[in-house]
């Protein structure tokens, strides 16, 4: 049995923190769902889970790549690698989506939640078509999305890093696969929970919904991720 020393507790807290980062990330990403796919709402036209998990898993790949070639890398470096991968993934998704919205669907990018874009200061309400919730991916949504993806990738990198510390001494060659799959499980749990909280669509950090749902979603995520952390560390006990 693994002894619950102080370091173990810190690791459980770190897994709780990384789950929280992933949960928080979902709120930053401009998810439009089905309405956005028809250019009737602001954001990317697919579900929360697909975007958060898609960008997060790319972050997991980049952070594990960093870890594989630099096993002595600091925790922050692994997290940064994950953040970079996830942010690049989501930014390219939004860029490609934006190109289609602008030149394919031909809609002006506008947010229905704020009167002025907090970054560029441009008026938004004039450009929102009647009967829609905004269209495309305005600057604030793009920036919010990149920040969110970076948080998610960093969270994924953090779980992976913590689990590798436990599994590598026990099952050297297979540790990456087991830690990666476990991280994926935690990732899905933590990206679905907030997607229930936001109810399918959110524009990003400027959306009034953001302030309303973040506290309860984060609280849920901390508890559930720490439960997962305890489970992950107990699994290591069975690997001897």
């Amino acid at each position: 049995m693994v002894v619950f020393a102080t370091t173990t507790l810190i690791d459980i807290l770190l897994i709780g923190l990384s789950g929280t980062l992933i949960c928080l990330a979902v709120h930053f990403i401009p998810v439009g769902g089905a309405p956005a796919a028809m250019a009737q709402a602001t954001g990317i036209g697919t579900g929360t889970v697909e975007l958060a998990a898609g960008s997060g898993l790319v972050g997991l790949i980049t952070s594990s790549y960093m870890y594989a070639y630099e096993p002595k890398a600091a925790m922050l470096l692994v997290m940064a690698a994950g953040a970079m991968g996830a942010a690049i993934m989501l930014a390219s998704t939004m860029l490609a989506g934006g190109l289609i919205y602008a030149y394919g669907v031909a809609v002006p990018f506008a947010s229905a939640q704020v009167k002025k874009d907090p970054i560029t200061g441009e008026r938004q309400d004039n450009y929102v078509s009647k009967g829609t919730q905004g269209q495309g991916i305005p600057t604030i949504c793009f920036v919010s999305g990149v920040v969110g993806a970076a948080l998610g990738g960093a969270g994924g990198g953090l779980i992976y890093f913590v689990l590798m510390q436990y599994y590598t001494p026990l099952i050297a060659g297979s540790a990456a696969a087991v830690a990666g799959v476990f991280t994926m499980g935690v990732f899905y749990v933590n990206s679905v929970i907030p997607s229930y909280g936001v109810g399918g669509t959110i524009e990003g950090v400027h959306d009034p919904k953001f302030r309303r749902v973040v506290p309860k979603d984060v609280f849920t995520s901390v508890i559930v991720s720490m439960l997962c952390g305890v489970v992950a560390i107990l699994i290591a006990g069975g690997m001897v």
């Binding site: 579900g47 929360t48 935690v186 749990v189 679905v192 997607s195 229930y196 109810g199 399918g200």
Partner: peptide, 14 residues
């Protein structure tokens, strides 16, 4: 659910 049916399948497997 507000997020589509696939989300629940994914959390189930998670």
């Amino acid at each position: 659910l507000g997020t589509g049916v696939p989300s629940i399948g994914q959390i189930a497997m998670g």
